[in-house]
Nucleic acid binder design. Structure first.
Ligand SMILES: [Mn+2]
Ligand SMILES: [Mn+2]
Length: 605
DNA sequence: TTGAGCT
DNA sequence: AGCTCAATTCTGCGC
DNA sequence: GCGCAG
């Protein structure tokens, strides 16, 4: 039976020509076993997981015939539920793993599809265990290519190959941005040693660093309980046991036994000793994979608060200076500048892809949304080097390509991020956007109705379409385009035709009247907004509304009469995305899948 | 929010 | 040193 | 070409 080779934990990243690097995903270590009789998934301790992942199995079973010549297969990998292509959601997967009811499993598979990410192979027809890692990877590539499976991480496909990289730095940067679990460094020329924890596989974790003070010590199991303040009340941060050097463990326990008070075998001491802990997550008095990092004599217990914990978990980039964190930017809900920057940091993995390689139009409110604002398109000379630049006919425009630049731009008092429809150095649009503008928020349901009709039109034309609130009054529909897929003339012809259809169908609800006085109380289908040189609010951009609303991507199932767009704010959107995922997560992958046959038929009639 | 230009 | 100002732009419709 | 609109 399969017995996985295991990586060794380290904090030092090994470098050199013989090392390569893979993303480490937080899921179940799983083997895909495919024999003549069929395909199965086996867990690390030999448990059969097949029943728990019907969506992956049913995909694989389509390849029954094509795979026959490669059998038997024994592929080593990780079963995951992905949030992004660099980060998996372990708690969702855990939920799935605990399910017993087949209907529940199938329903879960619908809403949160799992994927098998393959990183090694023990057998593809013949035994590969004595071959080098590099060779085994090649064999998997050949197998995947012949079956048409992705050689990179695909969010759409139930199975993918985990690629490896020669350079550690750029991968780590991306991983940090994505709040990934870590990376695994692997030596290219080593064989597969079943059941062994080996030194030629090294895992490096992307630790969050939290601080708390010690309140209890249990000599029975050597657990230290750490606490934090939540509005002057003590609250448990979590327990920690590992990571102490012998010396620090001894001095610490000696101090606690001397100064502490023993009750029922546990020593209690008042808040004084602050420590920093590495962990993967900290929530509700629990730490995931905690280990002691260092003492923090520079901190007082009063500084170890719930607010600080959440700030630490946010992992703001260290090289960006933050000014006036306590300035209210949205006075009405009392959202501070700090809240804004934390929002941008949390949403960066989802927002940055939409900003990338686009000349930005920023709207800045350095003193909050109730004060003066101004537009900015140029990159100021005083911007740090990491802020992107694009030079064009003697002008320098501002780009936002990295996390650092996003936070710096945010710290400059930028609230709104507007993007053009094409990337730099391209003259074709990379997306079509429908702008649905009701006269006011009172008529938001008109936008819902228009969006539903446009969704039907897109379905009929076999186009993938995504929907978001504008963060203000209306809705916008995004249709991703492949590079050089359609010209502006074509996209315009389409938006215009679709707008006409809407107005024809419900002339009392929708209009394309440019003059406000002629619109009445109808929704303005603003197809003119989609054109070269115009811009639209970026997905996940905050808006300068009094409520602090966000241009929020929606699931189509949410686009219903009673949807309230003001519920989506800088505080609610991050938790919504962490719970349900990003509704636009497939945006970039379906770009290539778009088929314009029917669209072209429509515009040529 | 930041820097330039002017007094 | 302190005050004031600026920080975008273009596109197209309908007449 | 102008003014409105975004
Ligand atoms: Mn709009
Ligand atoms: Mn509009």
């Amino acid at each position: 039976m399969w017995n996985p080779m295991l990586p060794t934990l380290t904090n030092e990243v090994p470098e050199g020509d013989n090392w390569v690097y893979e993303v480490k995903y937080d899921g179940f270590r799983t083997s895909l076993e495919w024999k003549e009789e069929g395909v199965r998934f086996i867990s690390r301790n030999g448990k059969d997981l097949t029943e728990h992942f019907p969506e992956v199995i049913s995909f694989l079973e389509h390849y029954q015939d094509q795979v026959r010549e490669f059998l038997p297969l024994s592929l080593d990998g990780e079963m995951v539920i992905l949030k992004t292509n660099l980060c998996a959601d372990f708690s969702l997967l855990q939920q799935r793993g605990r399910m017993k009811n087949m209907d529940k499993i199938k329903q879960h598979a619908q809403t949160f599809p799992a994927q098998f990410l393959c990183f090694d192979a023990l057998q593809i027809g013949r035994n590969l265990q004595t071959r080098t890692f590099e060779k085994r990877k090649e064999e998997i590539k050949d197998l995947f290519s012949s079956l048409g499976w992705p050689l990179h991480i695909s969010l759409l496909k139930p199975i993918s190959l985990i690629p490896f990289y020669d350079d550690y730095q750029p991968l780590w940067k991306q991983l940090e941005l994505a709040y990934g679990e870590g990376i695994v460094a692997k030596q290219k020329h080593q064989s597969y040693q079943q059941g062994k924890r080996v030194k030629h596989w090294l895992k490096i974790k992307n630790w969050r660093k939290v601080t708390g003070f010690i309140t209890e010590f249990d000599p029975e199991n050597d657990y230290f309980t750490t606490s934090i303040y939540n509005q002057n009340k003590l609250e448990t941060l979590g327990v920690v046991k590992h990571g102490f050097s012998e010396e620090s463990f001894n001095t610490l326990t000696k101090l606690i036994i001397e100064k502490g008070e023993k009750k029922k075998g546990i020593f209690h001491i008042p808040p004084a000793i602050c420590i920093q802990i590495n962990c993967l997550q900290a929530e509700e008095g629990q730490l995931r994979e905690p280990n002691f990092d260092q003492f923090r004599f520079d901190l007082s217990p009063e500084e170890c608060t719930l607010k600080k914990r959440d700030l630490d978990l946010t992992m703001l980039p260290e090289n960006v200076e933050i000014t006036s964190p306590d300035k209210p930017l949205w006075p009405q809900p009392n959202f501070l500048k700090q809240d804004h920057l934390i929002y941008l940091r949390k949403m960066a993995p989802y927002m940055l892809p939409f900003l990338k390689s686009k000349k930005l139009t920023l709207i800045r409110y350095p003193h909050g949304v109730e004060d003066e604002s101004f537009f900015q398109k140029h990159r100021p000379d005083y911007a740090p080097d990491f802020v992107g630049a694009y030079k064009e006919s003697g002008e320098t425009f501002i780009l936002c390509q990295t996390l650092e630049s996003l936070i710096w731009i945010g710290n400059q008092g930028t609230i709104e991020f507007h993007i053009p429809f094409q990337k730099i150095n391209e003259s074709f649009p990379d997306e079509i956007v429908f702008d649905l503008d009701p006269p006011s928020r009172k008529e938001f349901s008109l936008a819902i109705q228009a969006a539903q009709i446009l969704k039907m039109i897109c379905d009929q034309l076999e186009l993938y379409a995504f929907v978001k609130t504008s963060g203000n009054k209306g809705l916008q529909i995004h249709i991703p385009l492949p590079a050089n897929g359609l010209t502006y003339d074509e996209t315009r012809a389409f938006t215009e035709a679709a707008a006409q259809l809407l107005v024809q169908q419900y002339p009392e609800k929708f209009t394309i009247e440019r003059l406000k006085k002629n619109r009445g109380n109808r929704l303005y289908v603003d197809y003119v907004q989609h054109a070269e040189g115009k811009t639209i609010i970026a997905p996940y951009s905050p808006r300068s509304t009094k409520e602090g609303t966000i241009a929020t991507p929606l699931f189509w199932e949410e686009v219903h009469e009673d949807l309230n767009p003001t519920q989506f704010t800088i505080t609610s959107v991050p938790s919504r995305v962490s719970k349900f995922g990003c509704p636009m997560r497939y945006y970039d992958e379906v770009r290539q899948e778009q088929n314009f046959t029917k669209l072209k038929q429509l515009i040529n009639t």
